[in-house]
Design a protein around this nucleic acid. Sequence first.
DNA 1: ACCTGAACACCGTTCAAGT
DNA 2: ACCTGAACACCGTTCAAGT
Lengths: 249, 249
Amino acid sequence: MDTGKAGPGTRRSGAAGEVWLRPSARRGRGAPPLSRDRIVEEAVALLDAEGADRLTMRRLAERLDTGSTTLYWHVKTKDDVLDLALDAIFAEVGIPPKGGQGWRAGITVLINGWRAVLLRHPWSAALLSRPMLGPNVLARSEFLYATLLEAGVVEPHLTAAAYGLSNYVIGSGLMQATWPTSAEQDVRRAAREHLRANRERYPALATYGPLVAEGDWDAGFALGLTWLLDGIQAGIAGAGDAAGGAVRA
Amino acid sequence: MDTGKAGPGTRRSGAAGEVWLRPSARRGRGAPPLSRDRIVEEAVALLDAEGADRLTMRRLAERLDTGSTTLYWHVKTKDDVLDLALDAIFAEVGIPPKGGQGWRAGITVLINGWRAVLLRHPWSAALLSRPMLGPNVLARSEFLYATLLEAGVVEPHLTAAAYGLSNYVIGSGLMQATWPTSAEQDVRRAAREHLRANRERYPALATYGPLVAEGDWDAGFALGLTWLLDGIQAGIAGAGDAAGGAVRA
DNA sequence: ACCTGAACACCGTTCAAGT
DNA sequence: ACCTGAACACCGTTCAAGT
């Protein structure tokens, strides 16, 4: 594990003329100078590779070939790094072209892309408990609101729709990222057996529950999304009170 | 801050005869002996009072009047404490009586109770990224599945319904617990001004966005819940393909 | 303007030792 | 069976100092 760690003076002090043999940057060829962007990029890589609780200022600095304290010139705190990393991956969520398809299609593409990103970076689920106000997140929220407005959705349906859709993806991403992955077969099996052993207490779960049925995440997600979109659509047509009397909690 | 901290020997060594003046337990009157339950209870209190990142084995131990290392006799790791604390608050979610009302009413009560607990313990939102397999959580999932089954919901609607509802509450709780509270008026205002300053980039958000409109969380949540329930209900009636062709993502 | 090193005040956890 | 203290290998962050 510690193999790559140069002893004191090995690289930093530099033997006579050794400067010319070095490609001017610290690390191998072409490592750009340290910058906020590079720190965030490396943070995402570290998070992808090892998960949220392995992200340490010292370990991050090591990957960037600096001391941990150097990072604090470019970034104010570790929390900043997390905020920036979270916003960075949102850039991967494609924003559908403006007028292309109907509002349902546009929103479906956005939401599915959003979900895909959450699943591709499972650590992000745990970070969603911080306010998301970065430019990439805002750009996607803007698309969502704009599309709904253009479709004719008005308050109180507008807020409910935007929140409902967002909450649904976030919850789904969190749930699925959380769930014992197939890599943890032992945990899955243990959980399943736990349910079956207590089948008199959890009869429905033991037979139909998620750990048993191994339901199709994607199909389930799509179905729930349809329900939300249907509800939103119904609210557009008869703006009055298509939702019945259930609106007030 | 350090006022209450007894100097070495002040309490532990005990002057002659001092035993009889002590009420036999370490702390004031009637402190029950250390136990797993007491640790979890105190952990919840600490989390409620100070939030997730202030929970420390040492600080928790201090509240229990022990050394931090003592906790490890009752609990294996800090993660265990978090898992136990998370399951503990789920006990507050009331499970509706079995046959009382229709399935919609029962599920609505459960979901609203669930949401209320998440909002009452905002720290729990950040912990939802861990598998929830504790007895209290399972009991509530059991109710959900059993009620849906009894209402006649079948696969693939069953899994989609259970996940959809759960994901929706979880996402909502996370979102609302995360959002700058009214206590952080400055953050709210800064965010709002940020949106307005960039109104050409975020036109819809700047005018109708959540930070501006100050929408009613409860009403919005209830509306989205209605949509989900409507979708589930529609699936019961015409079991065939009431959801149209959108099922396969 | 950017980087470094030493240092501070913490962490979670282990373990031999006590009662 | 339960509790304690010392100790280990870490943390995030500050700050004076270097170039």
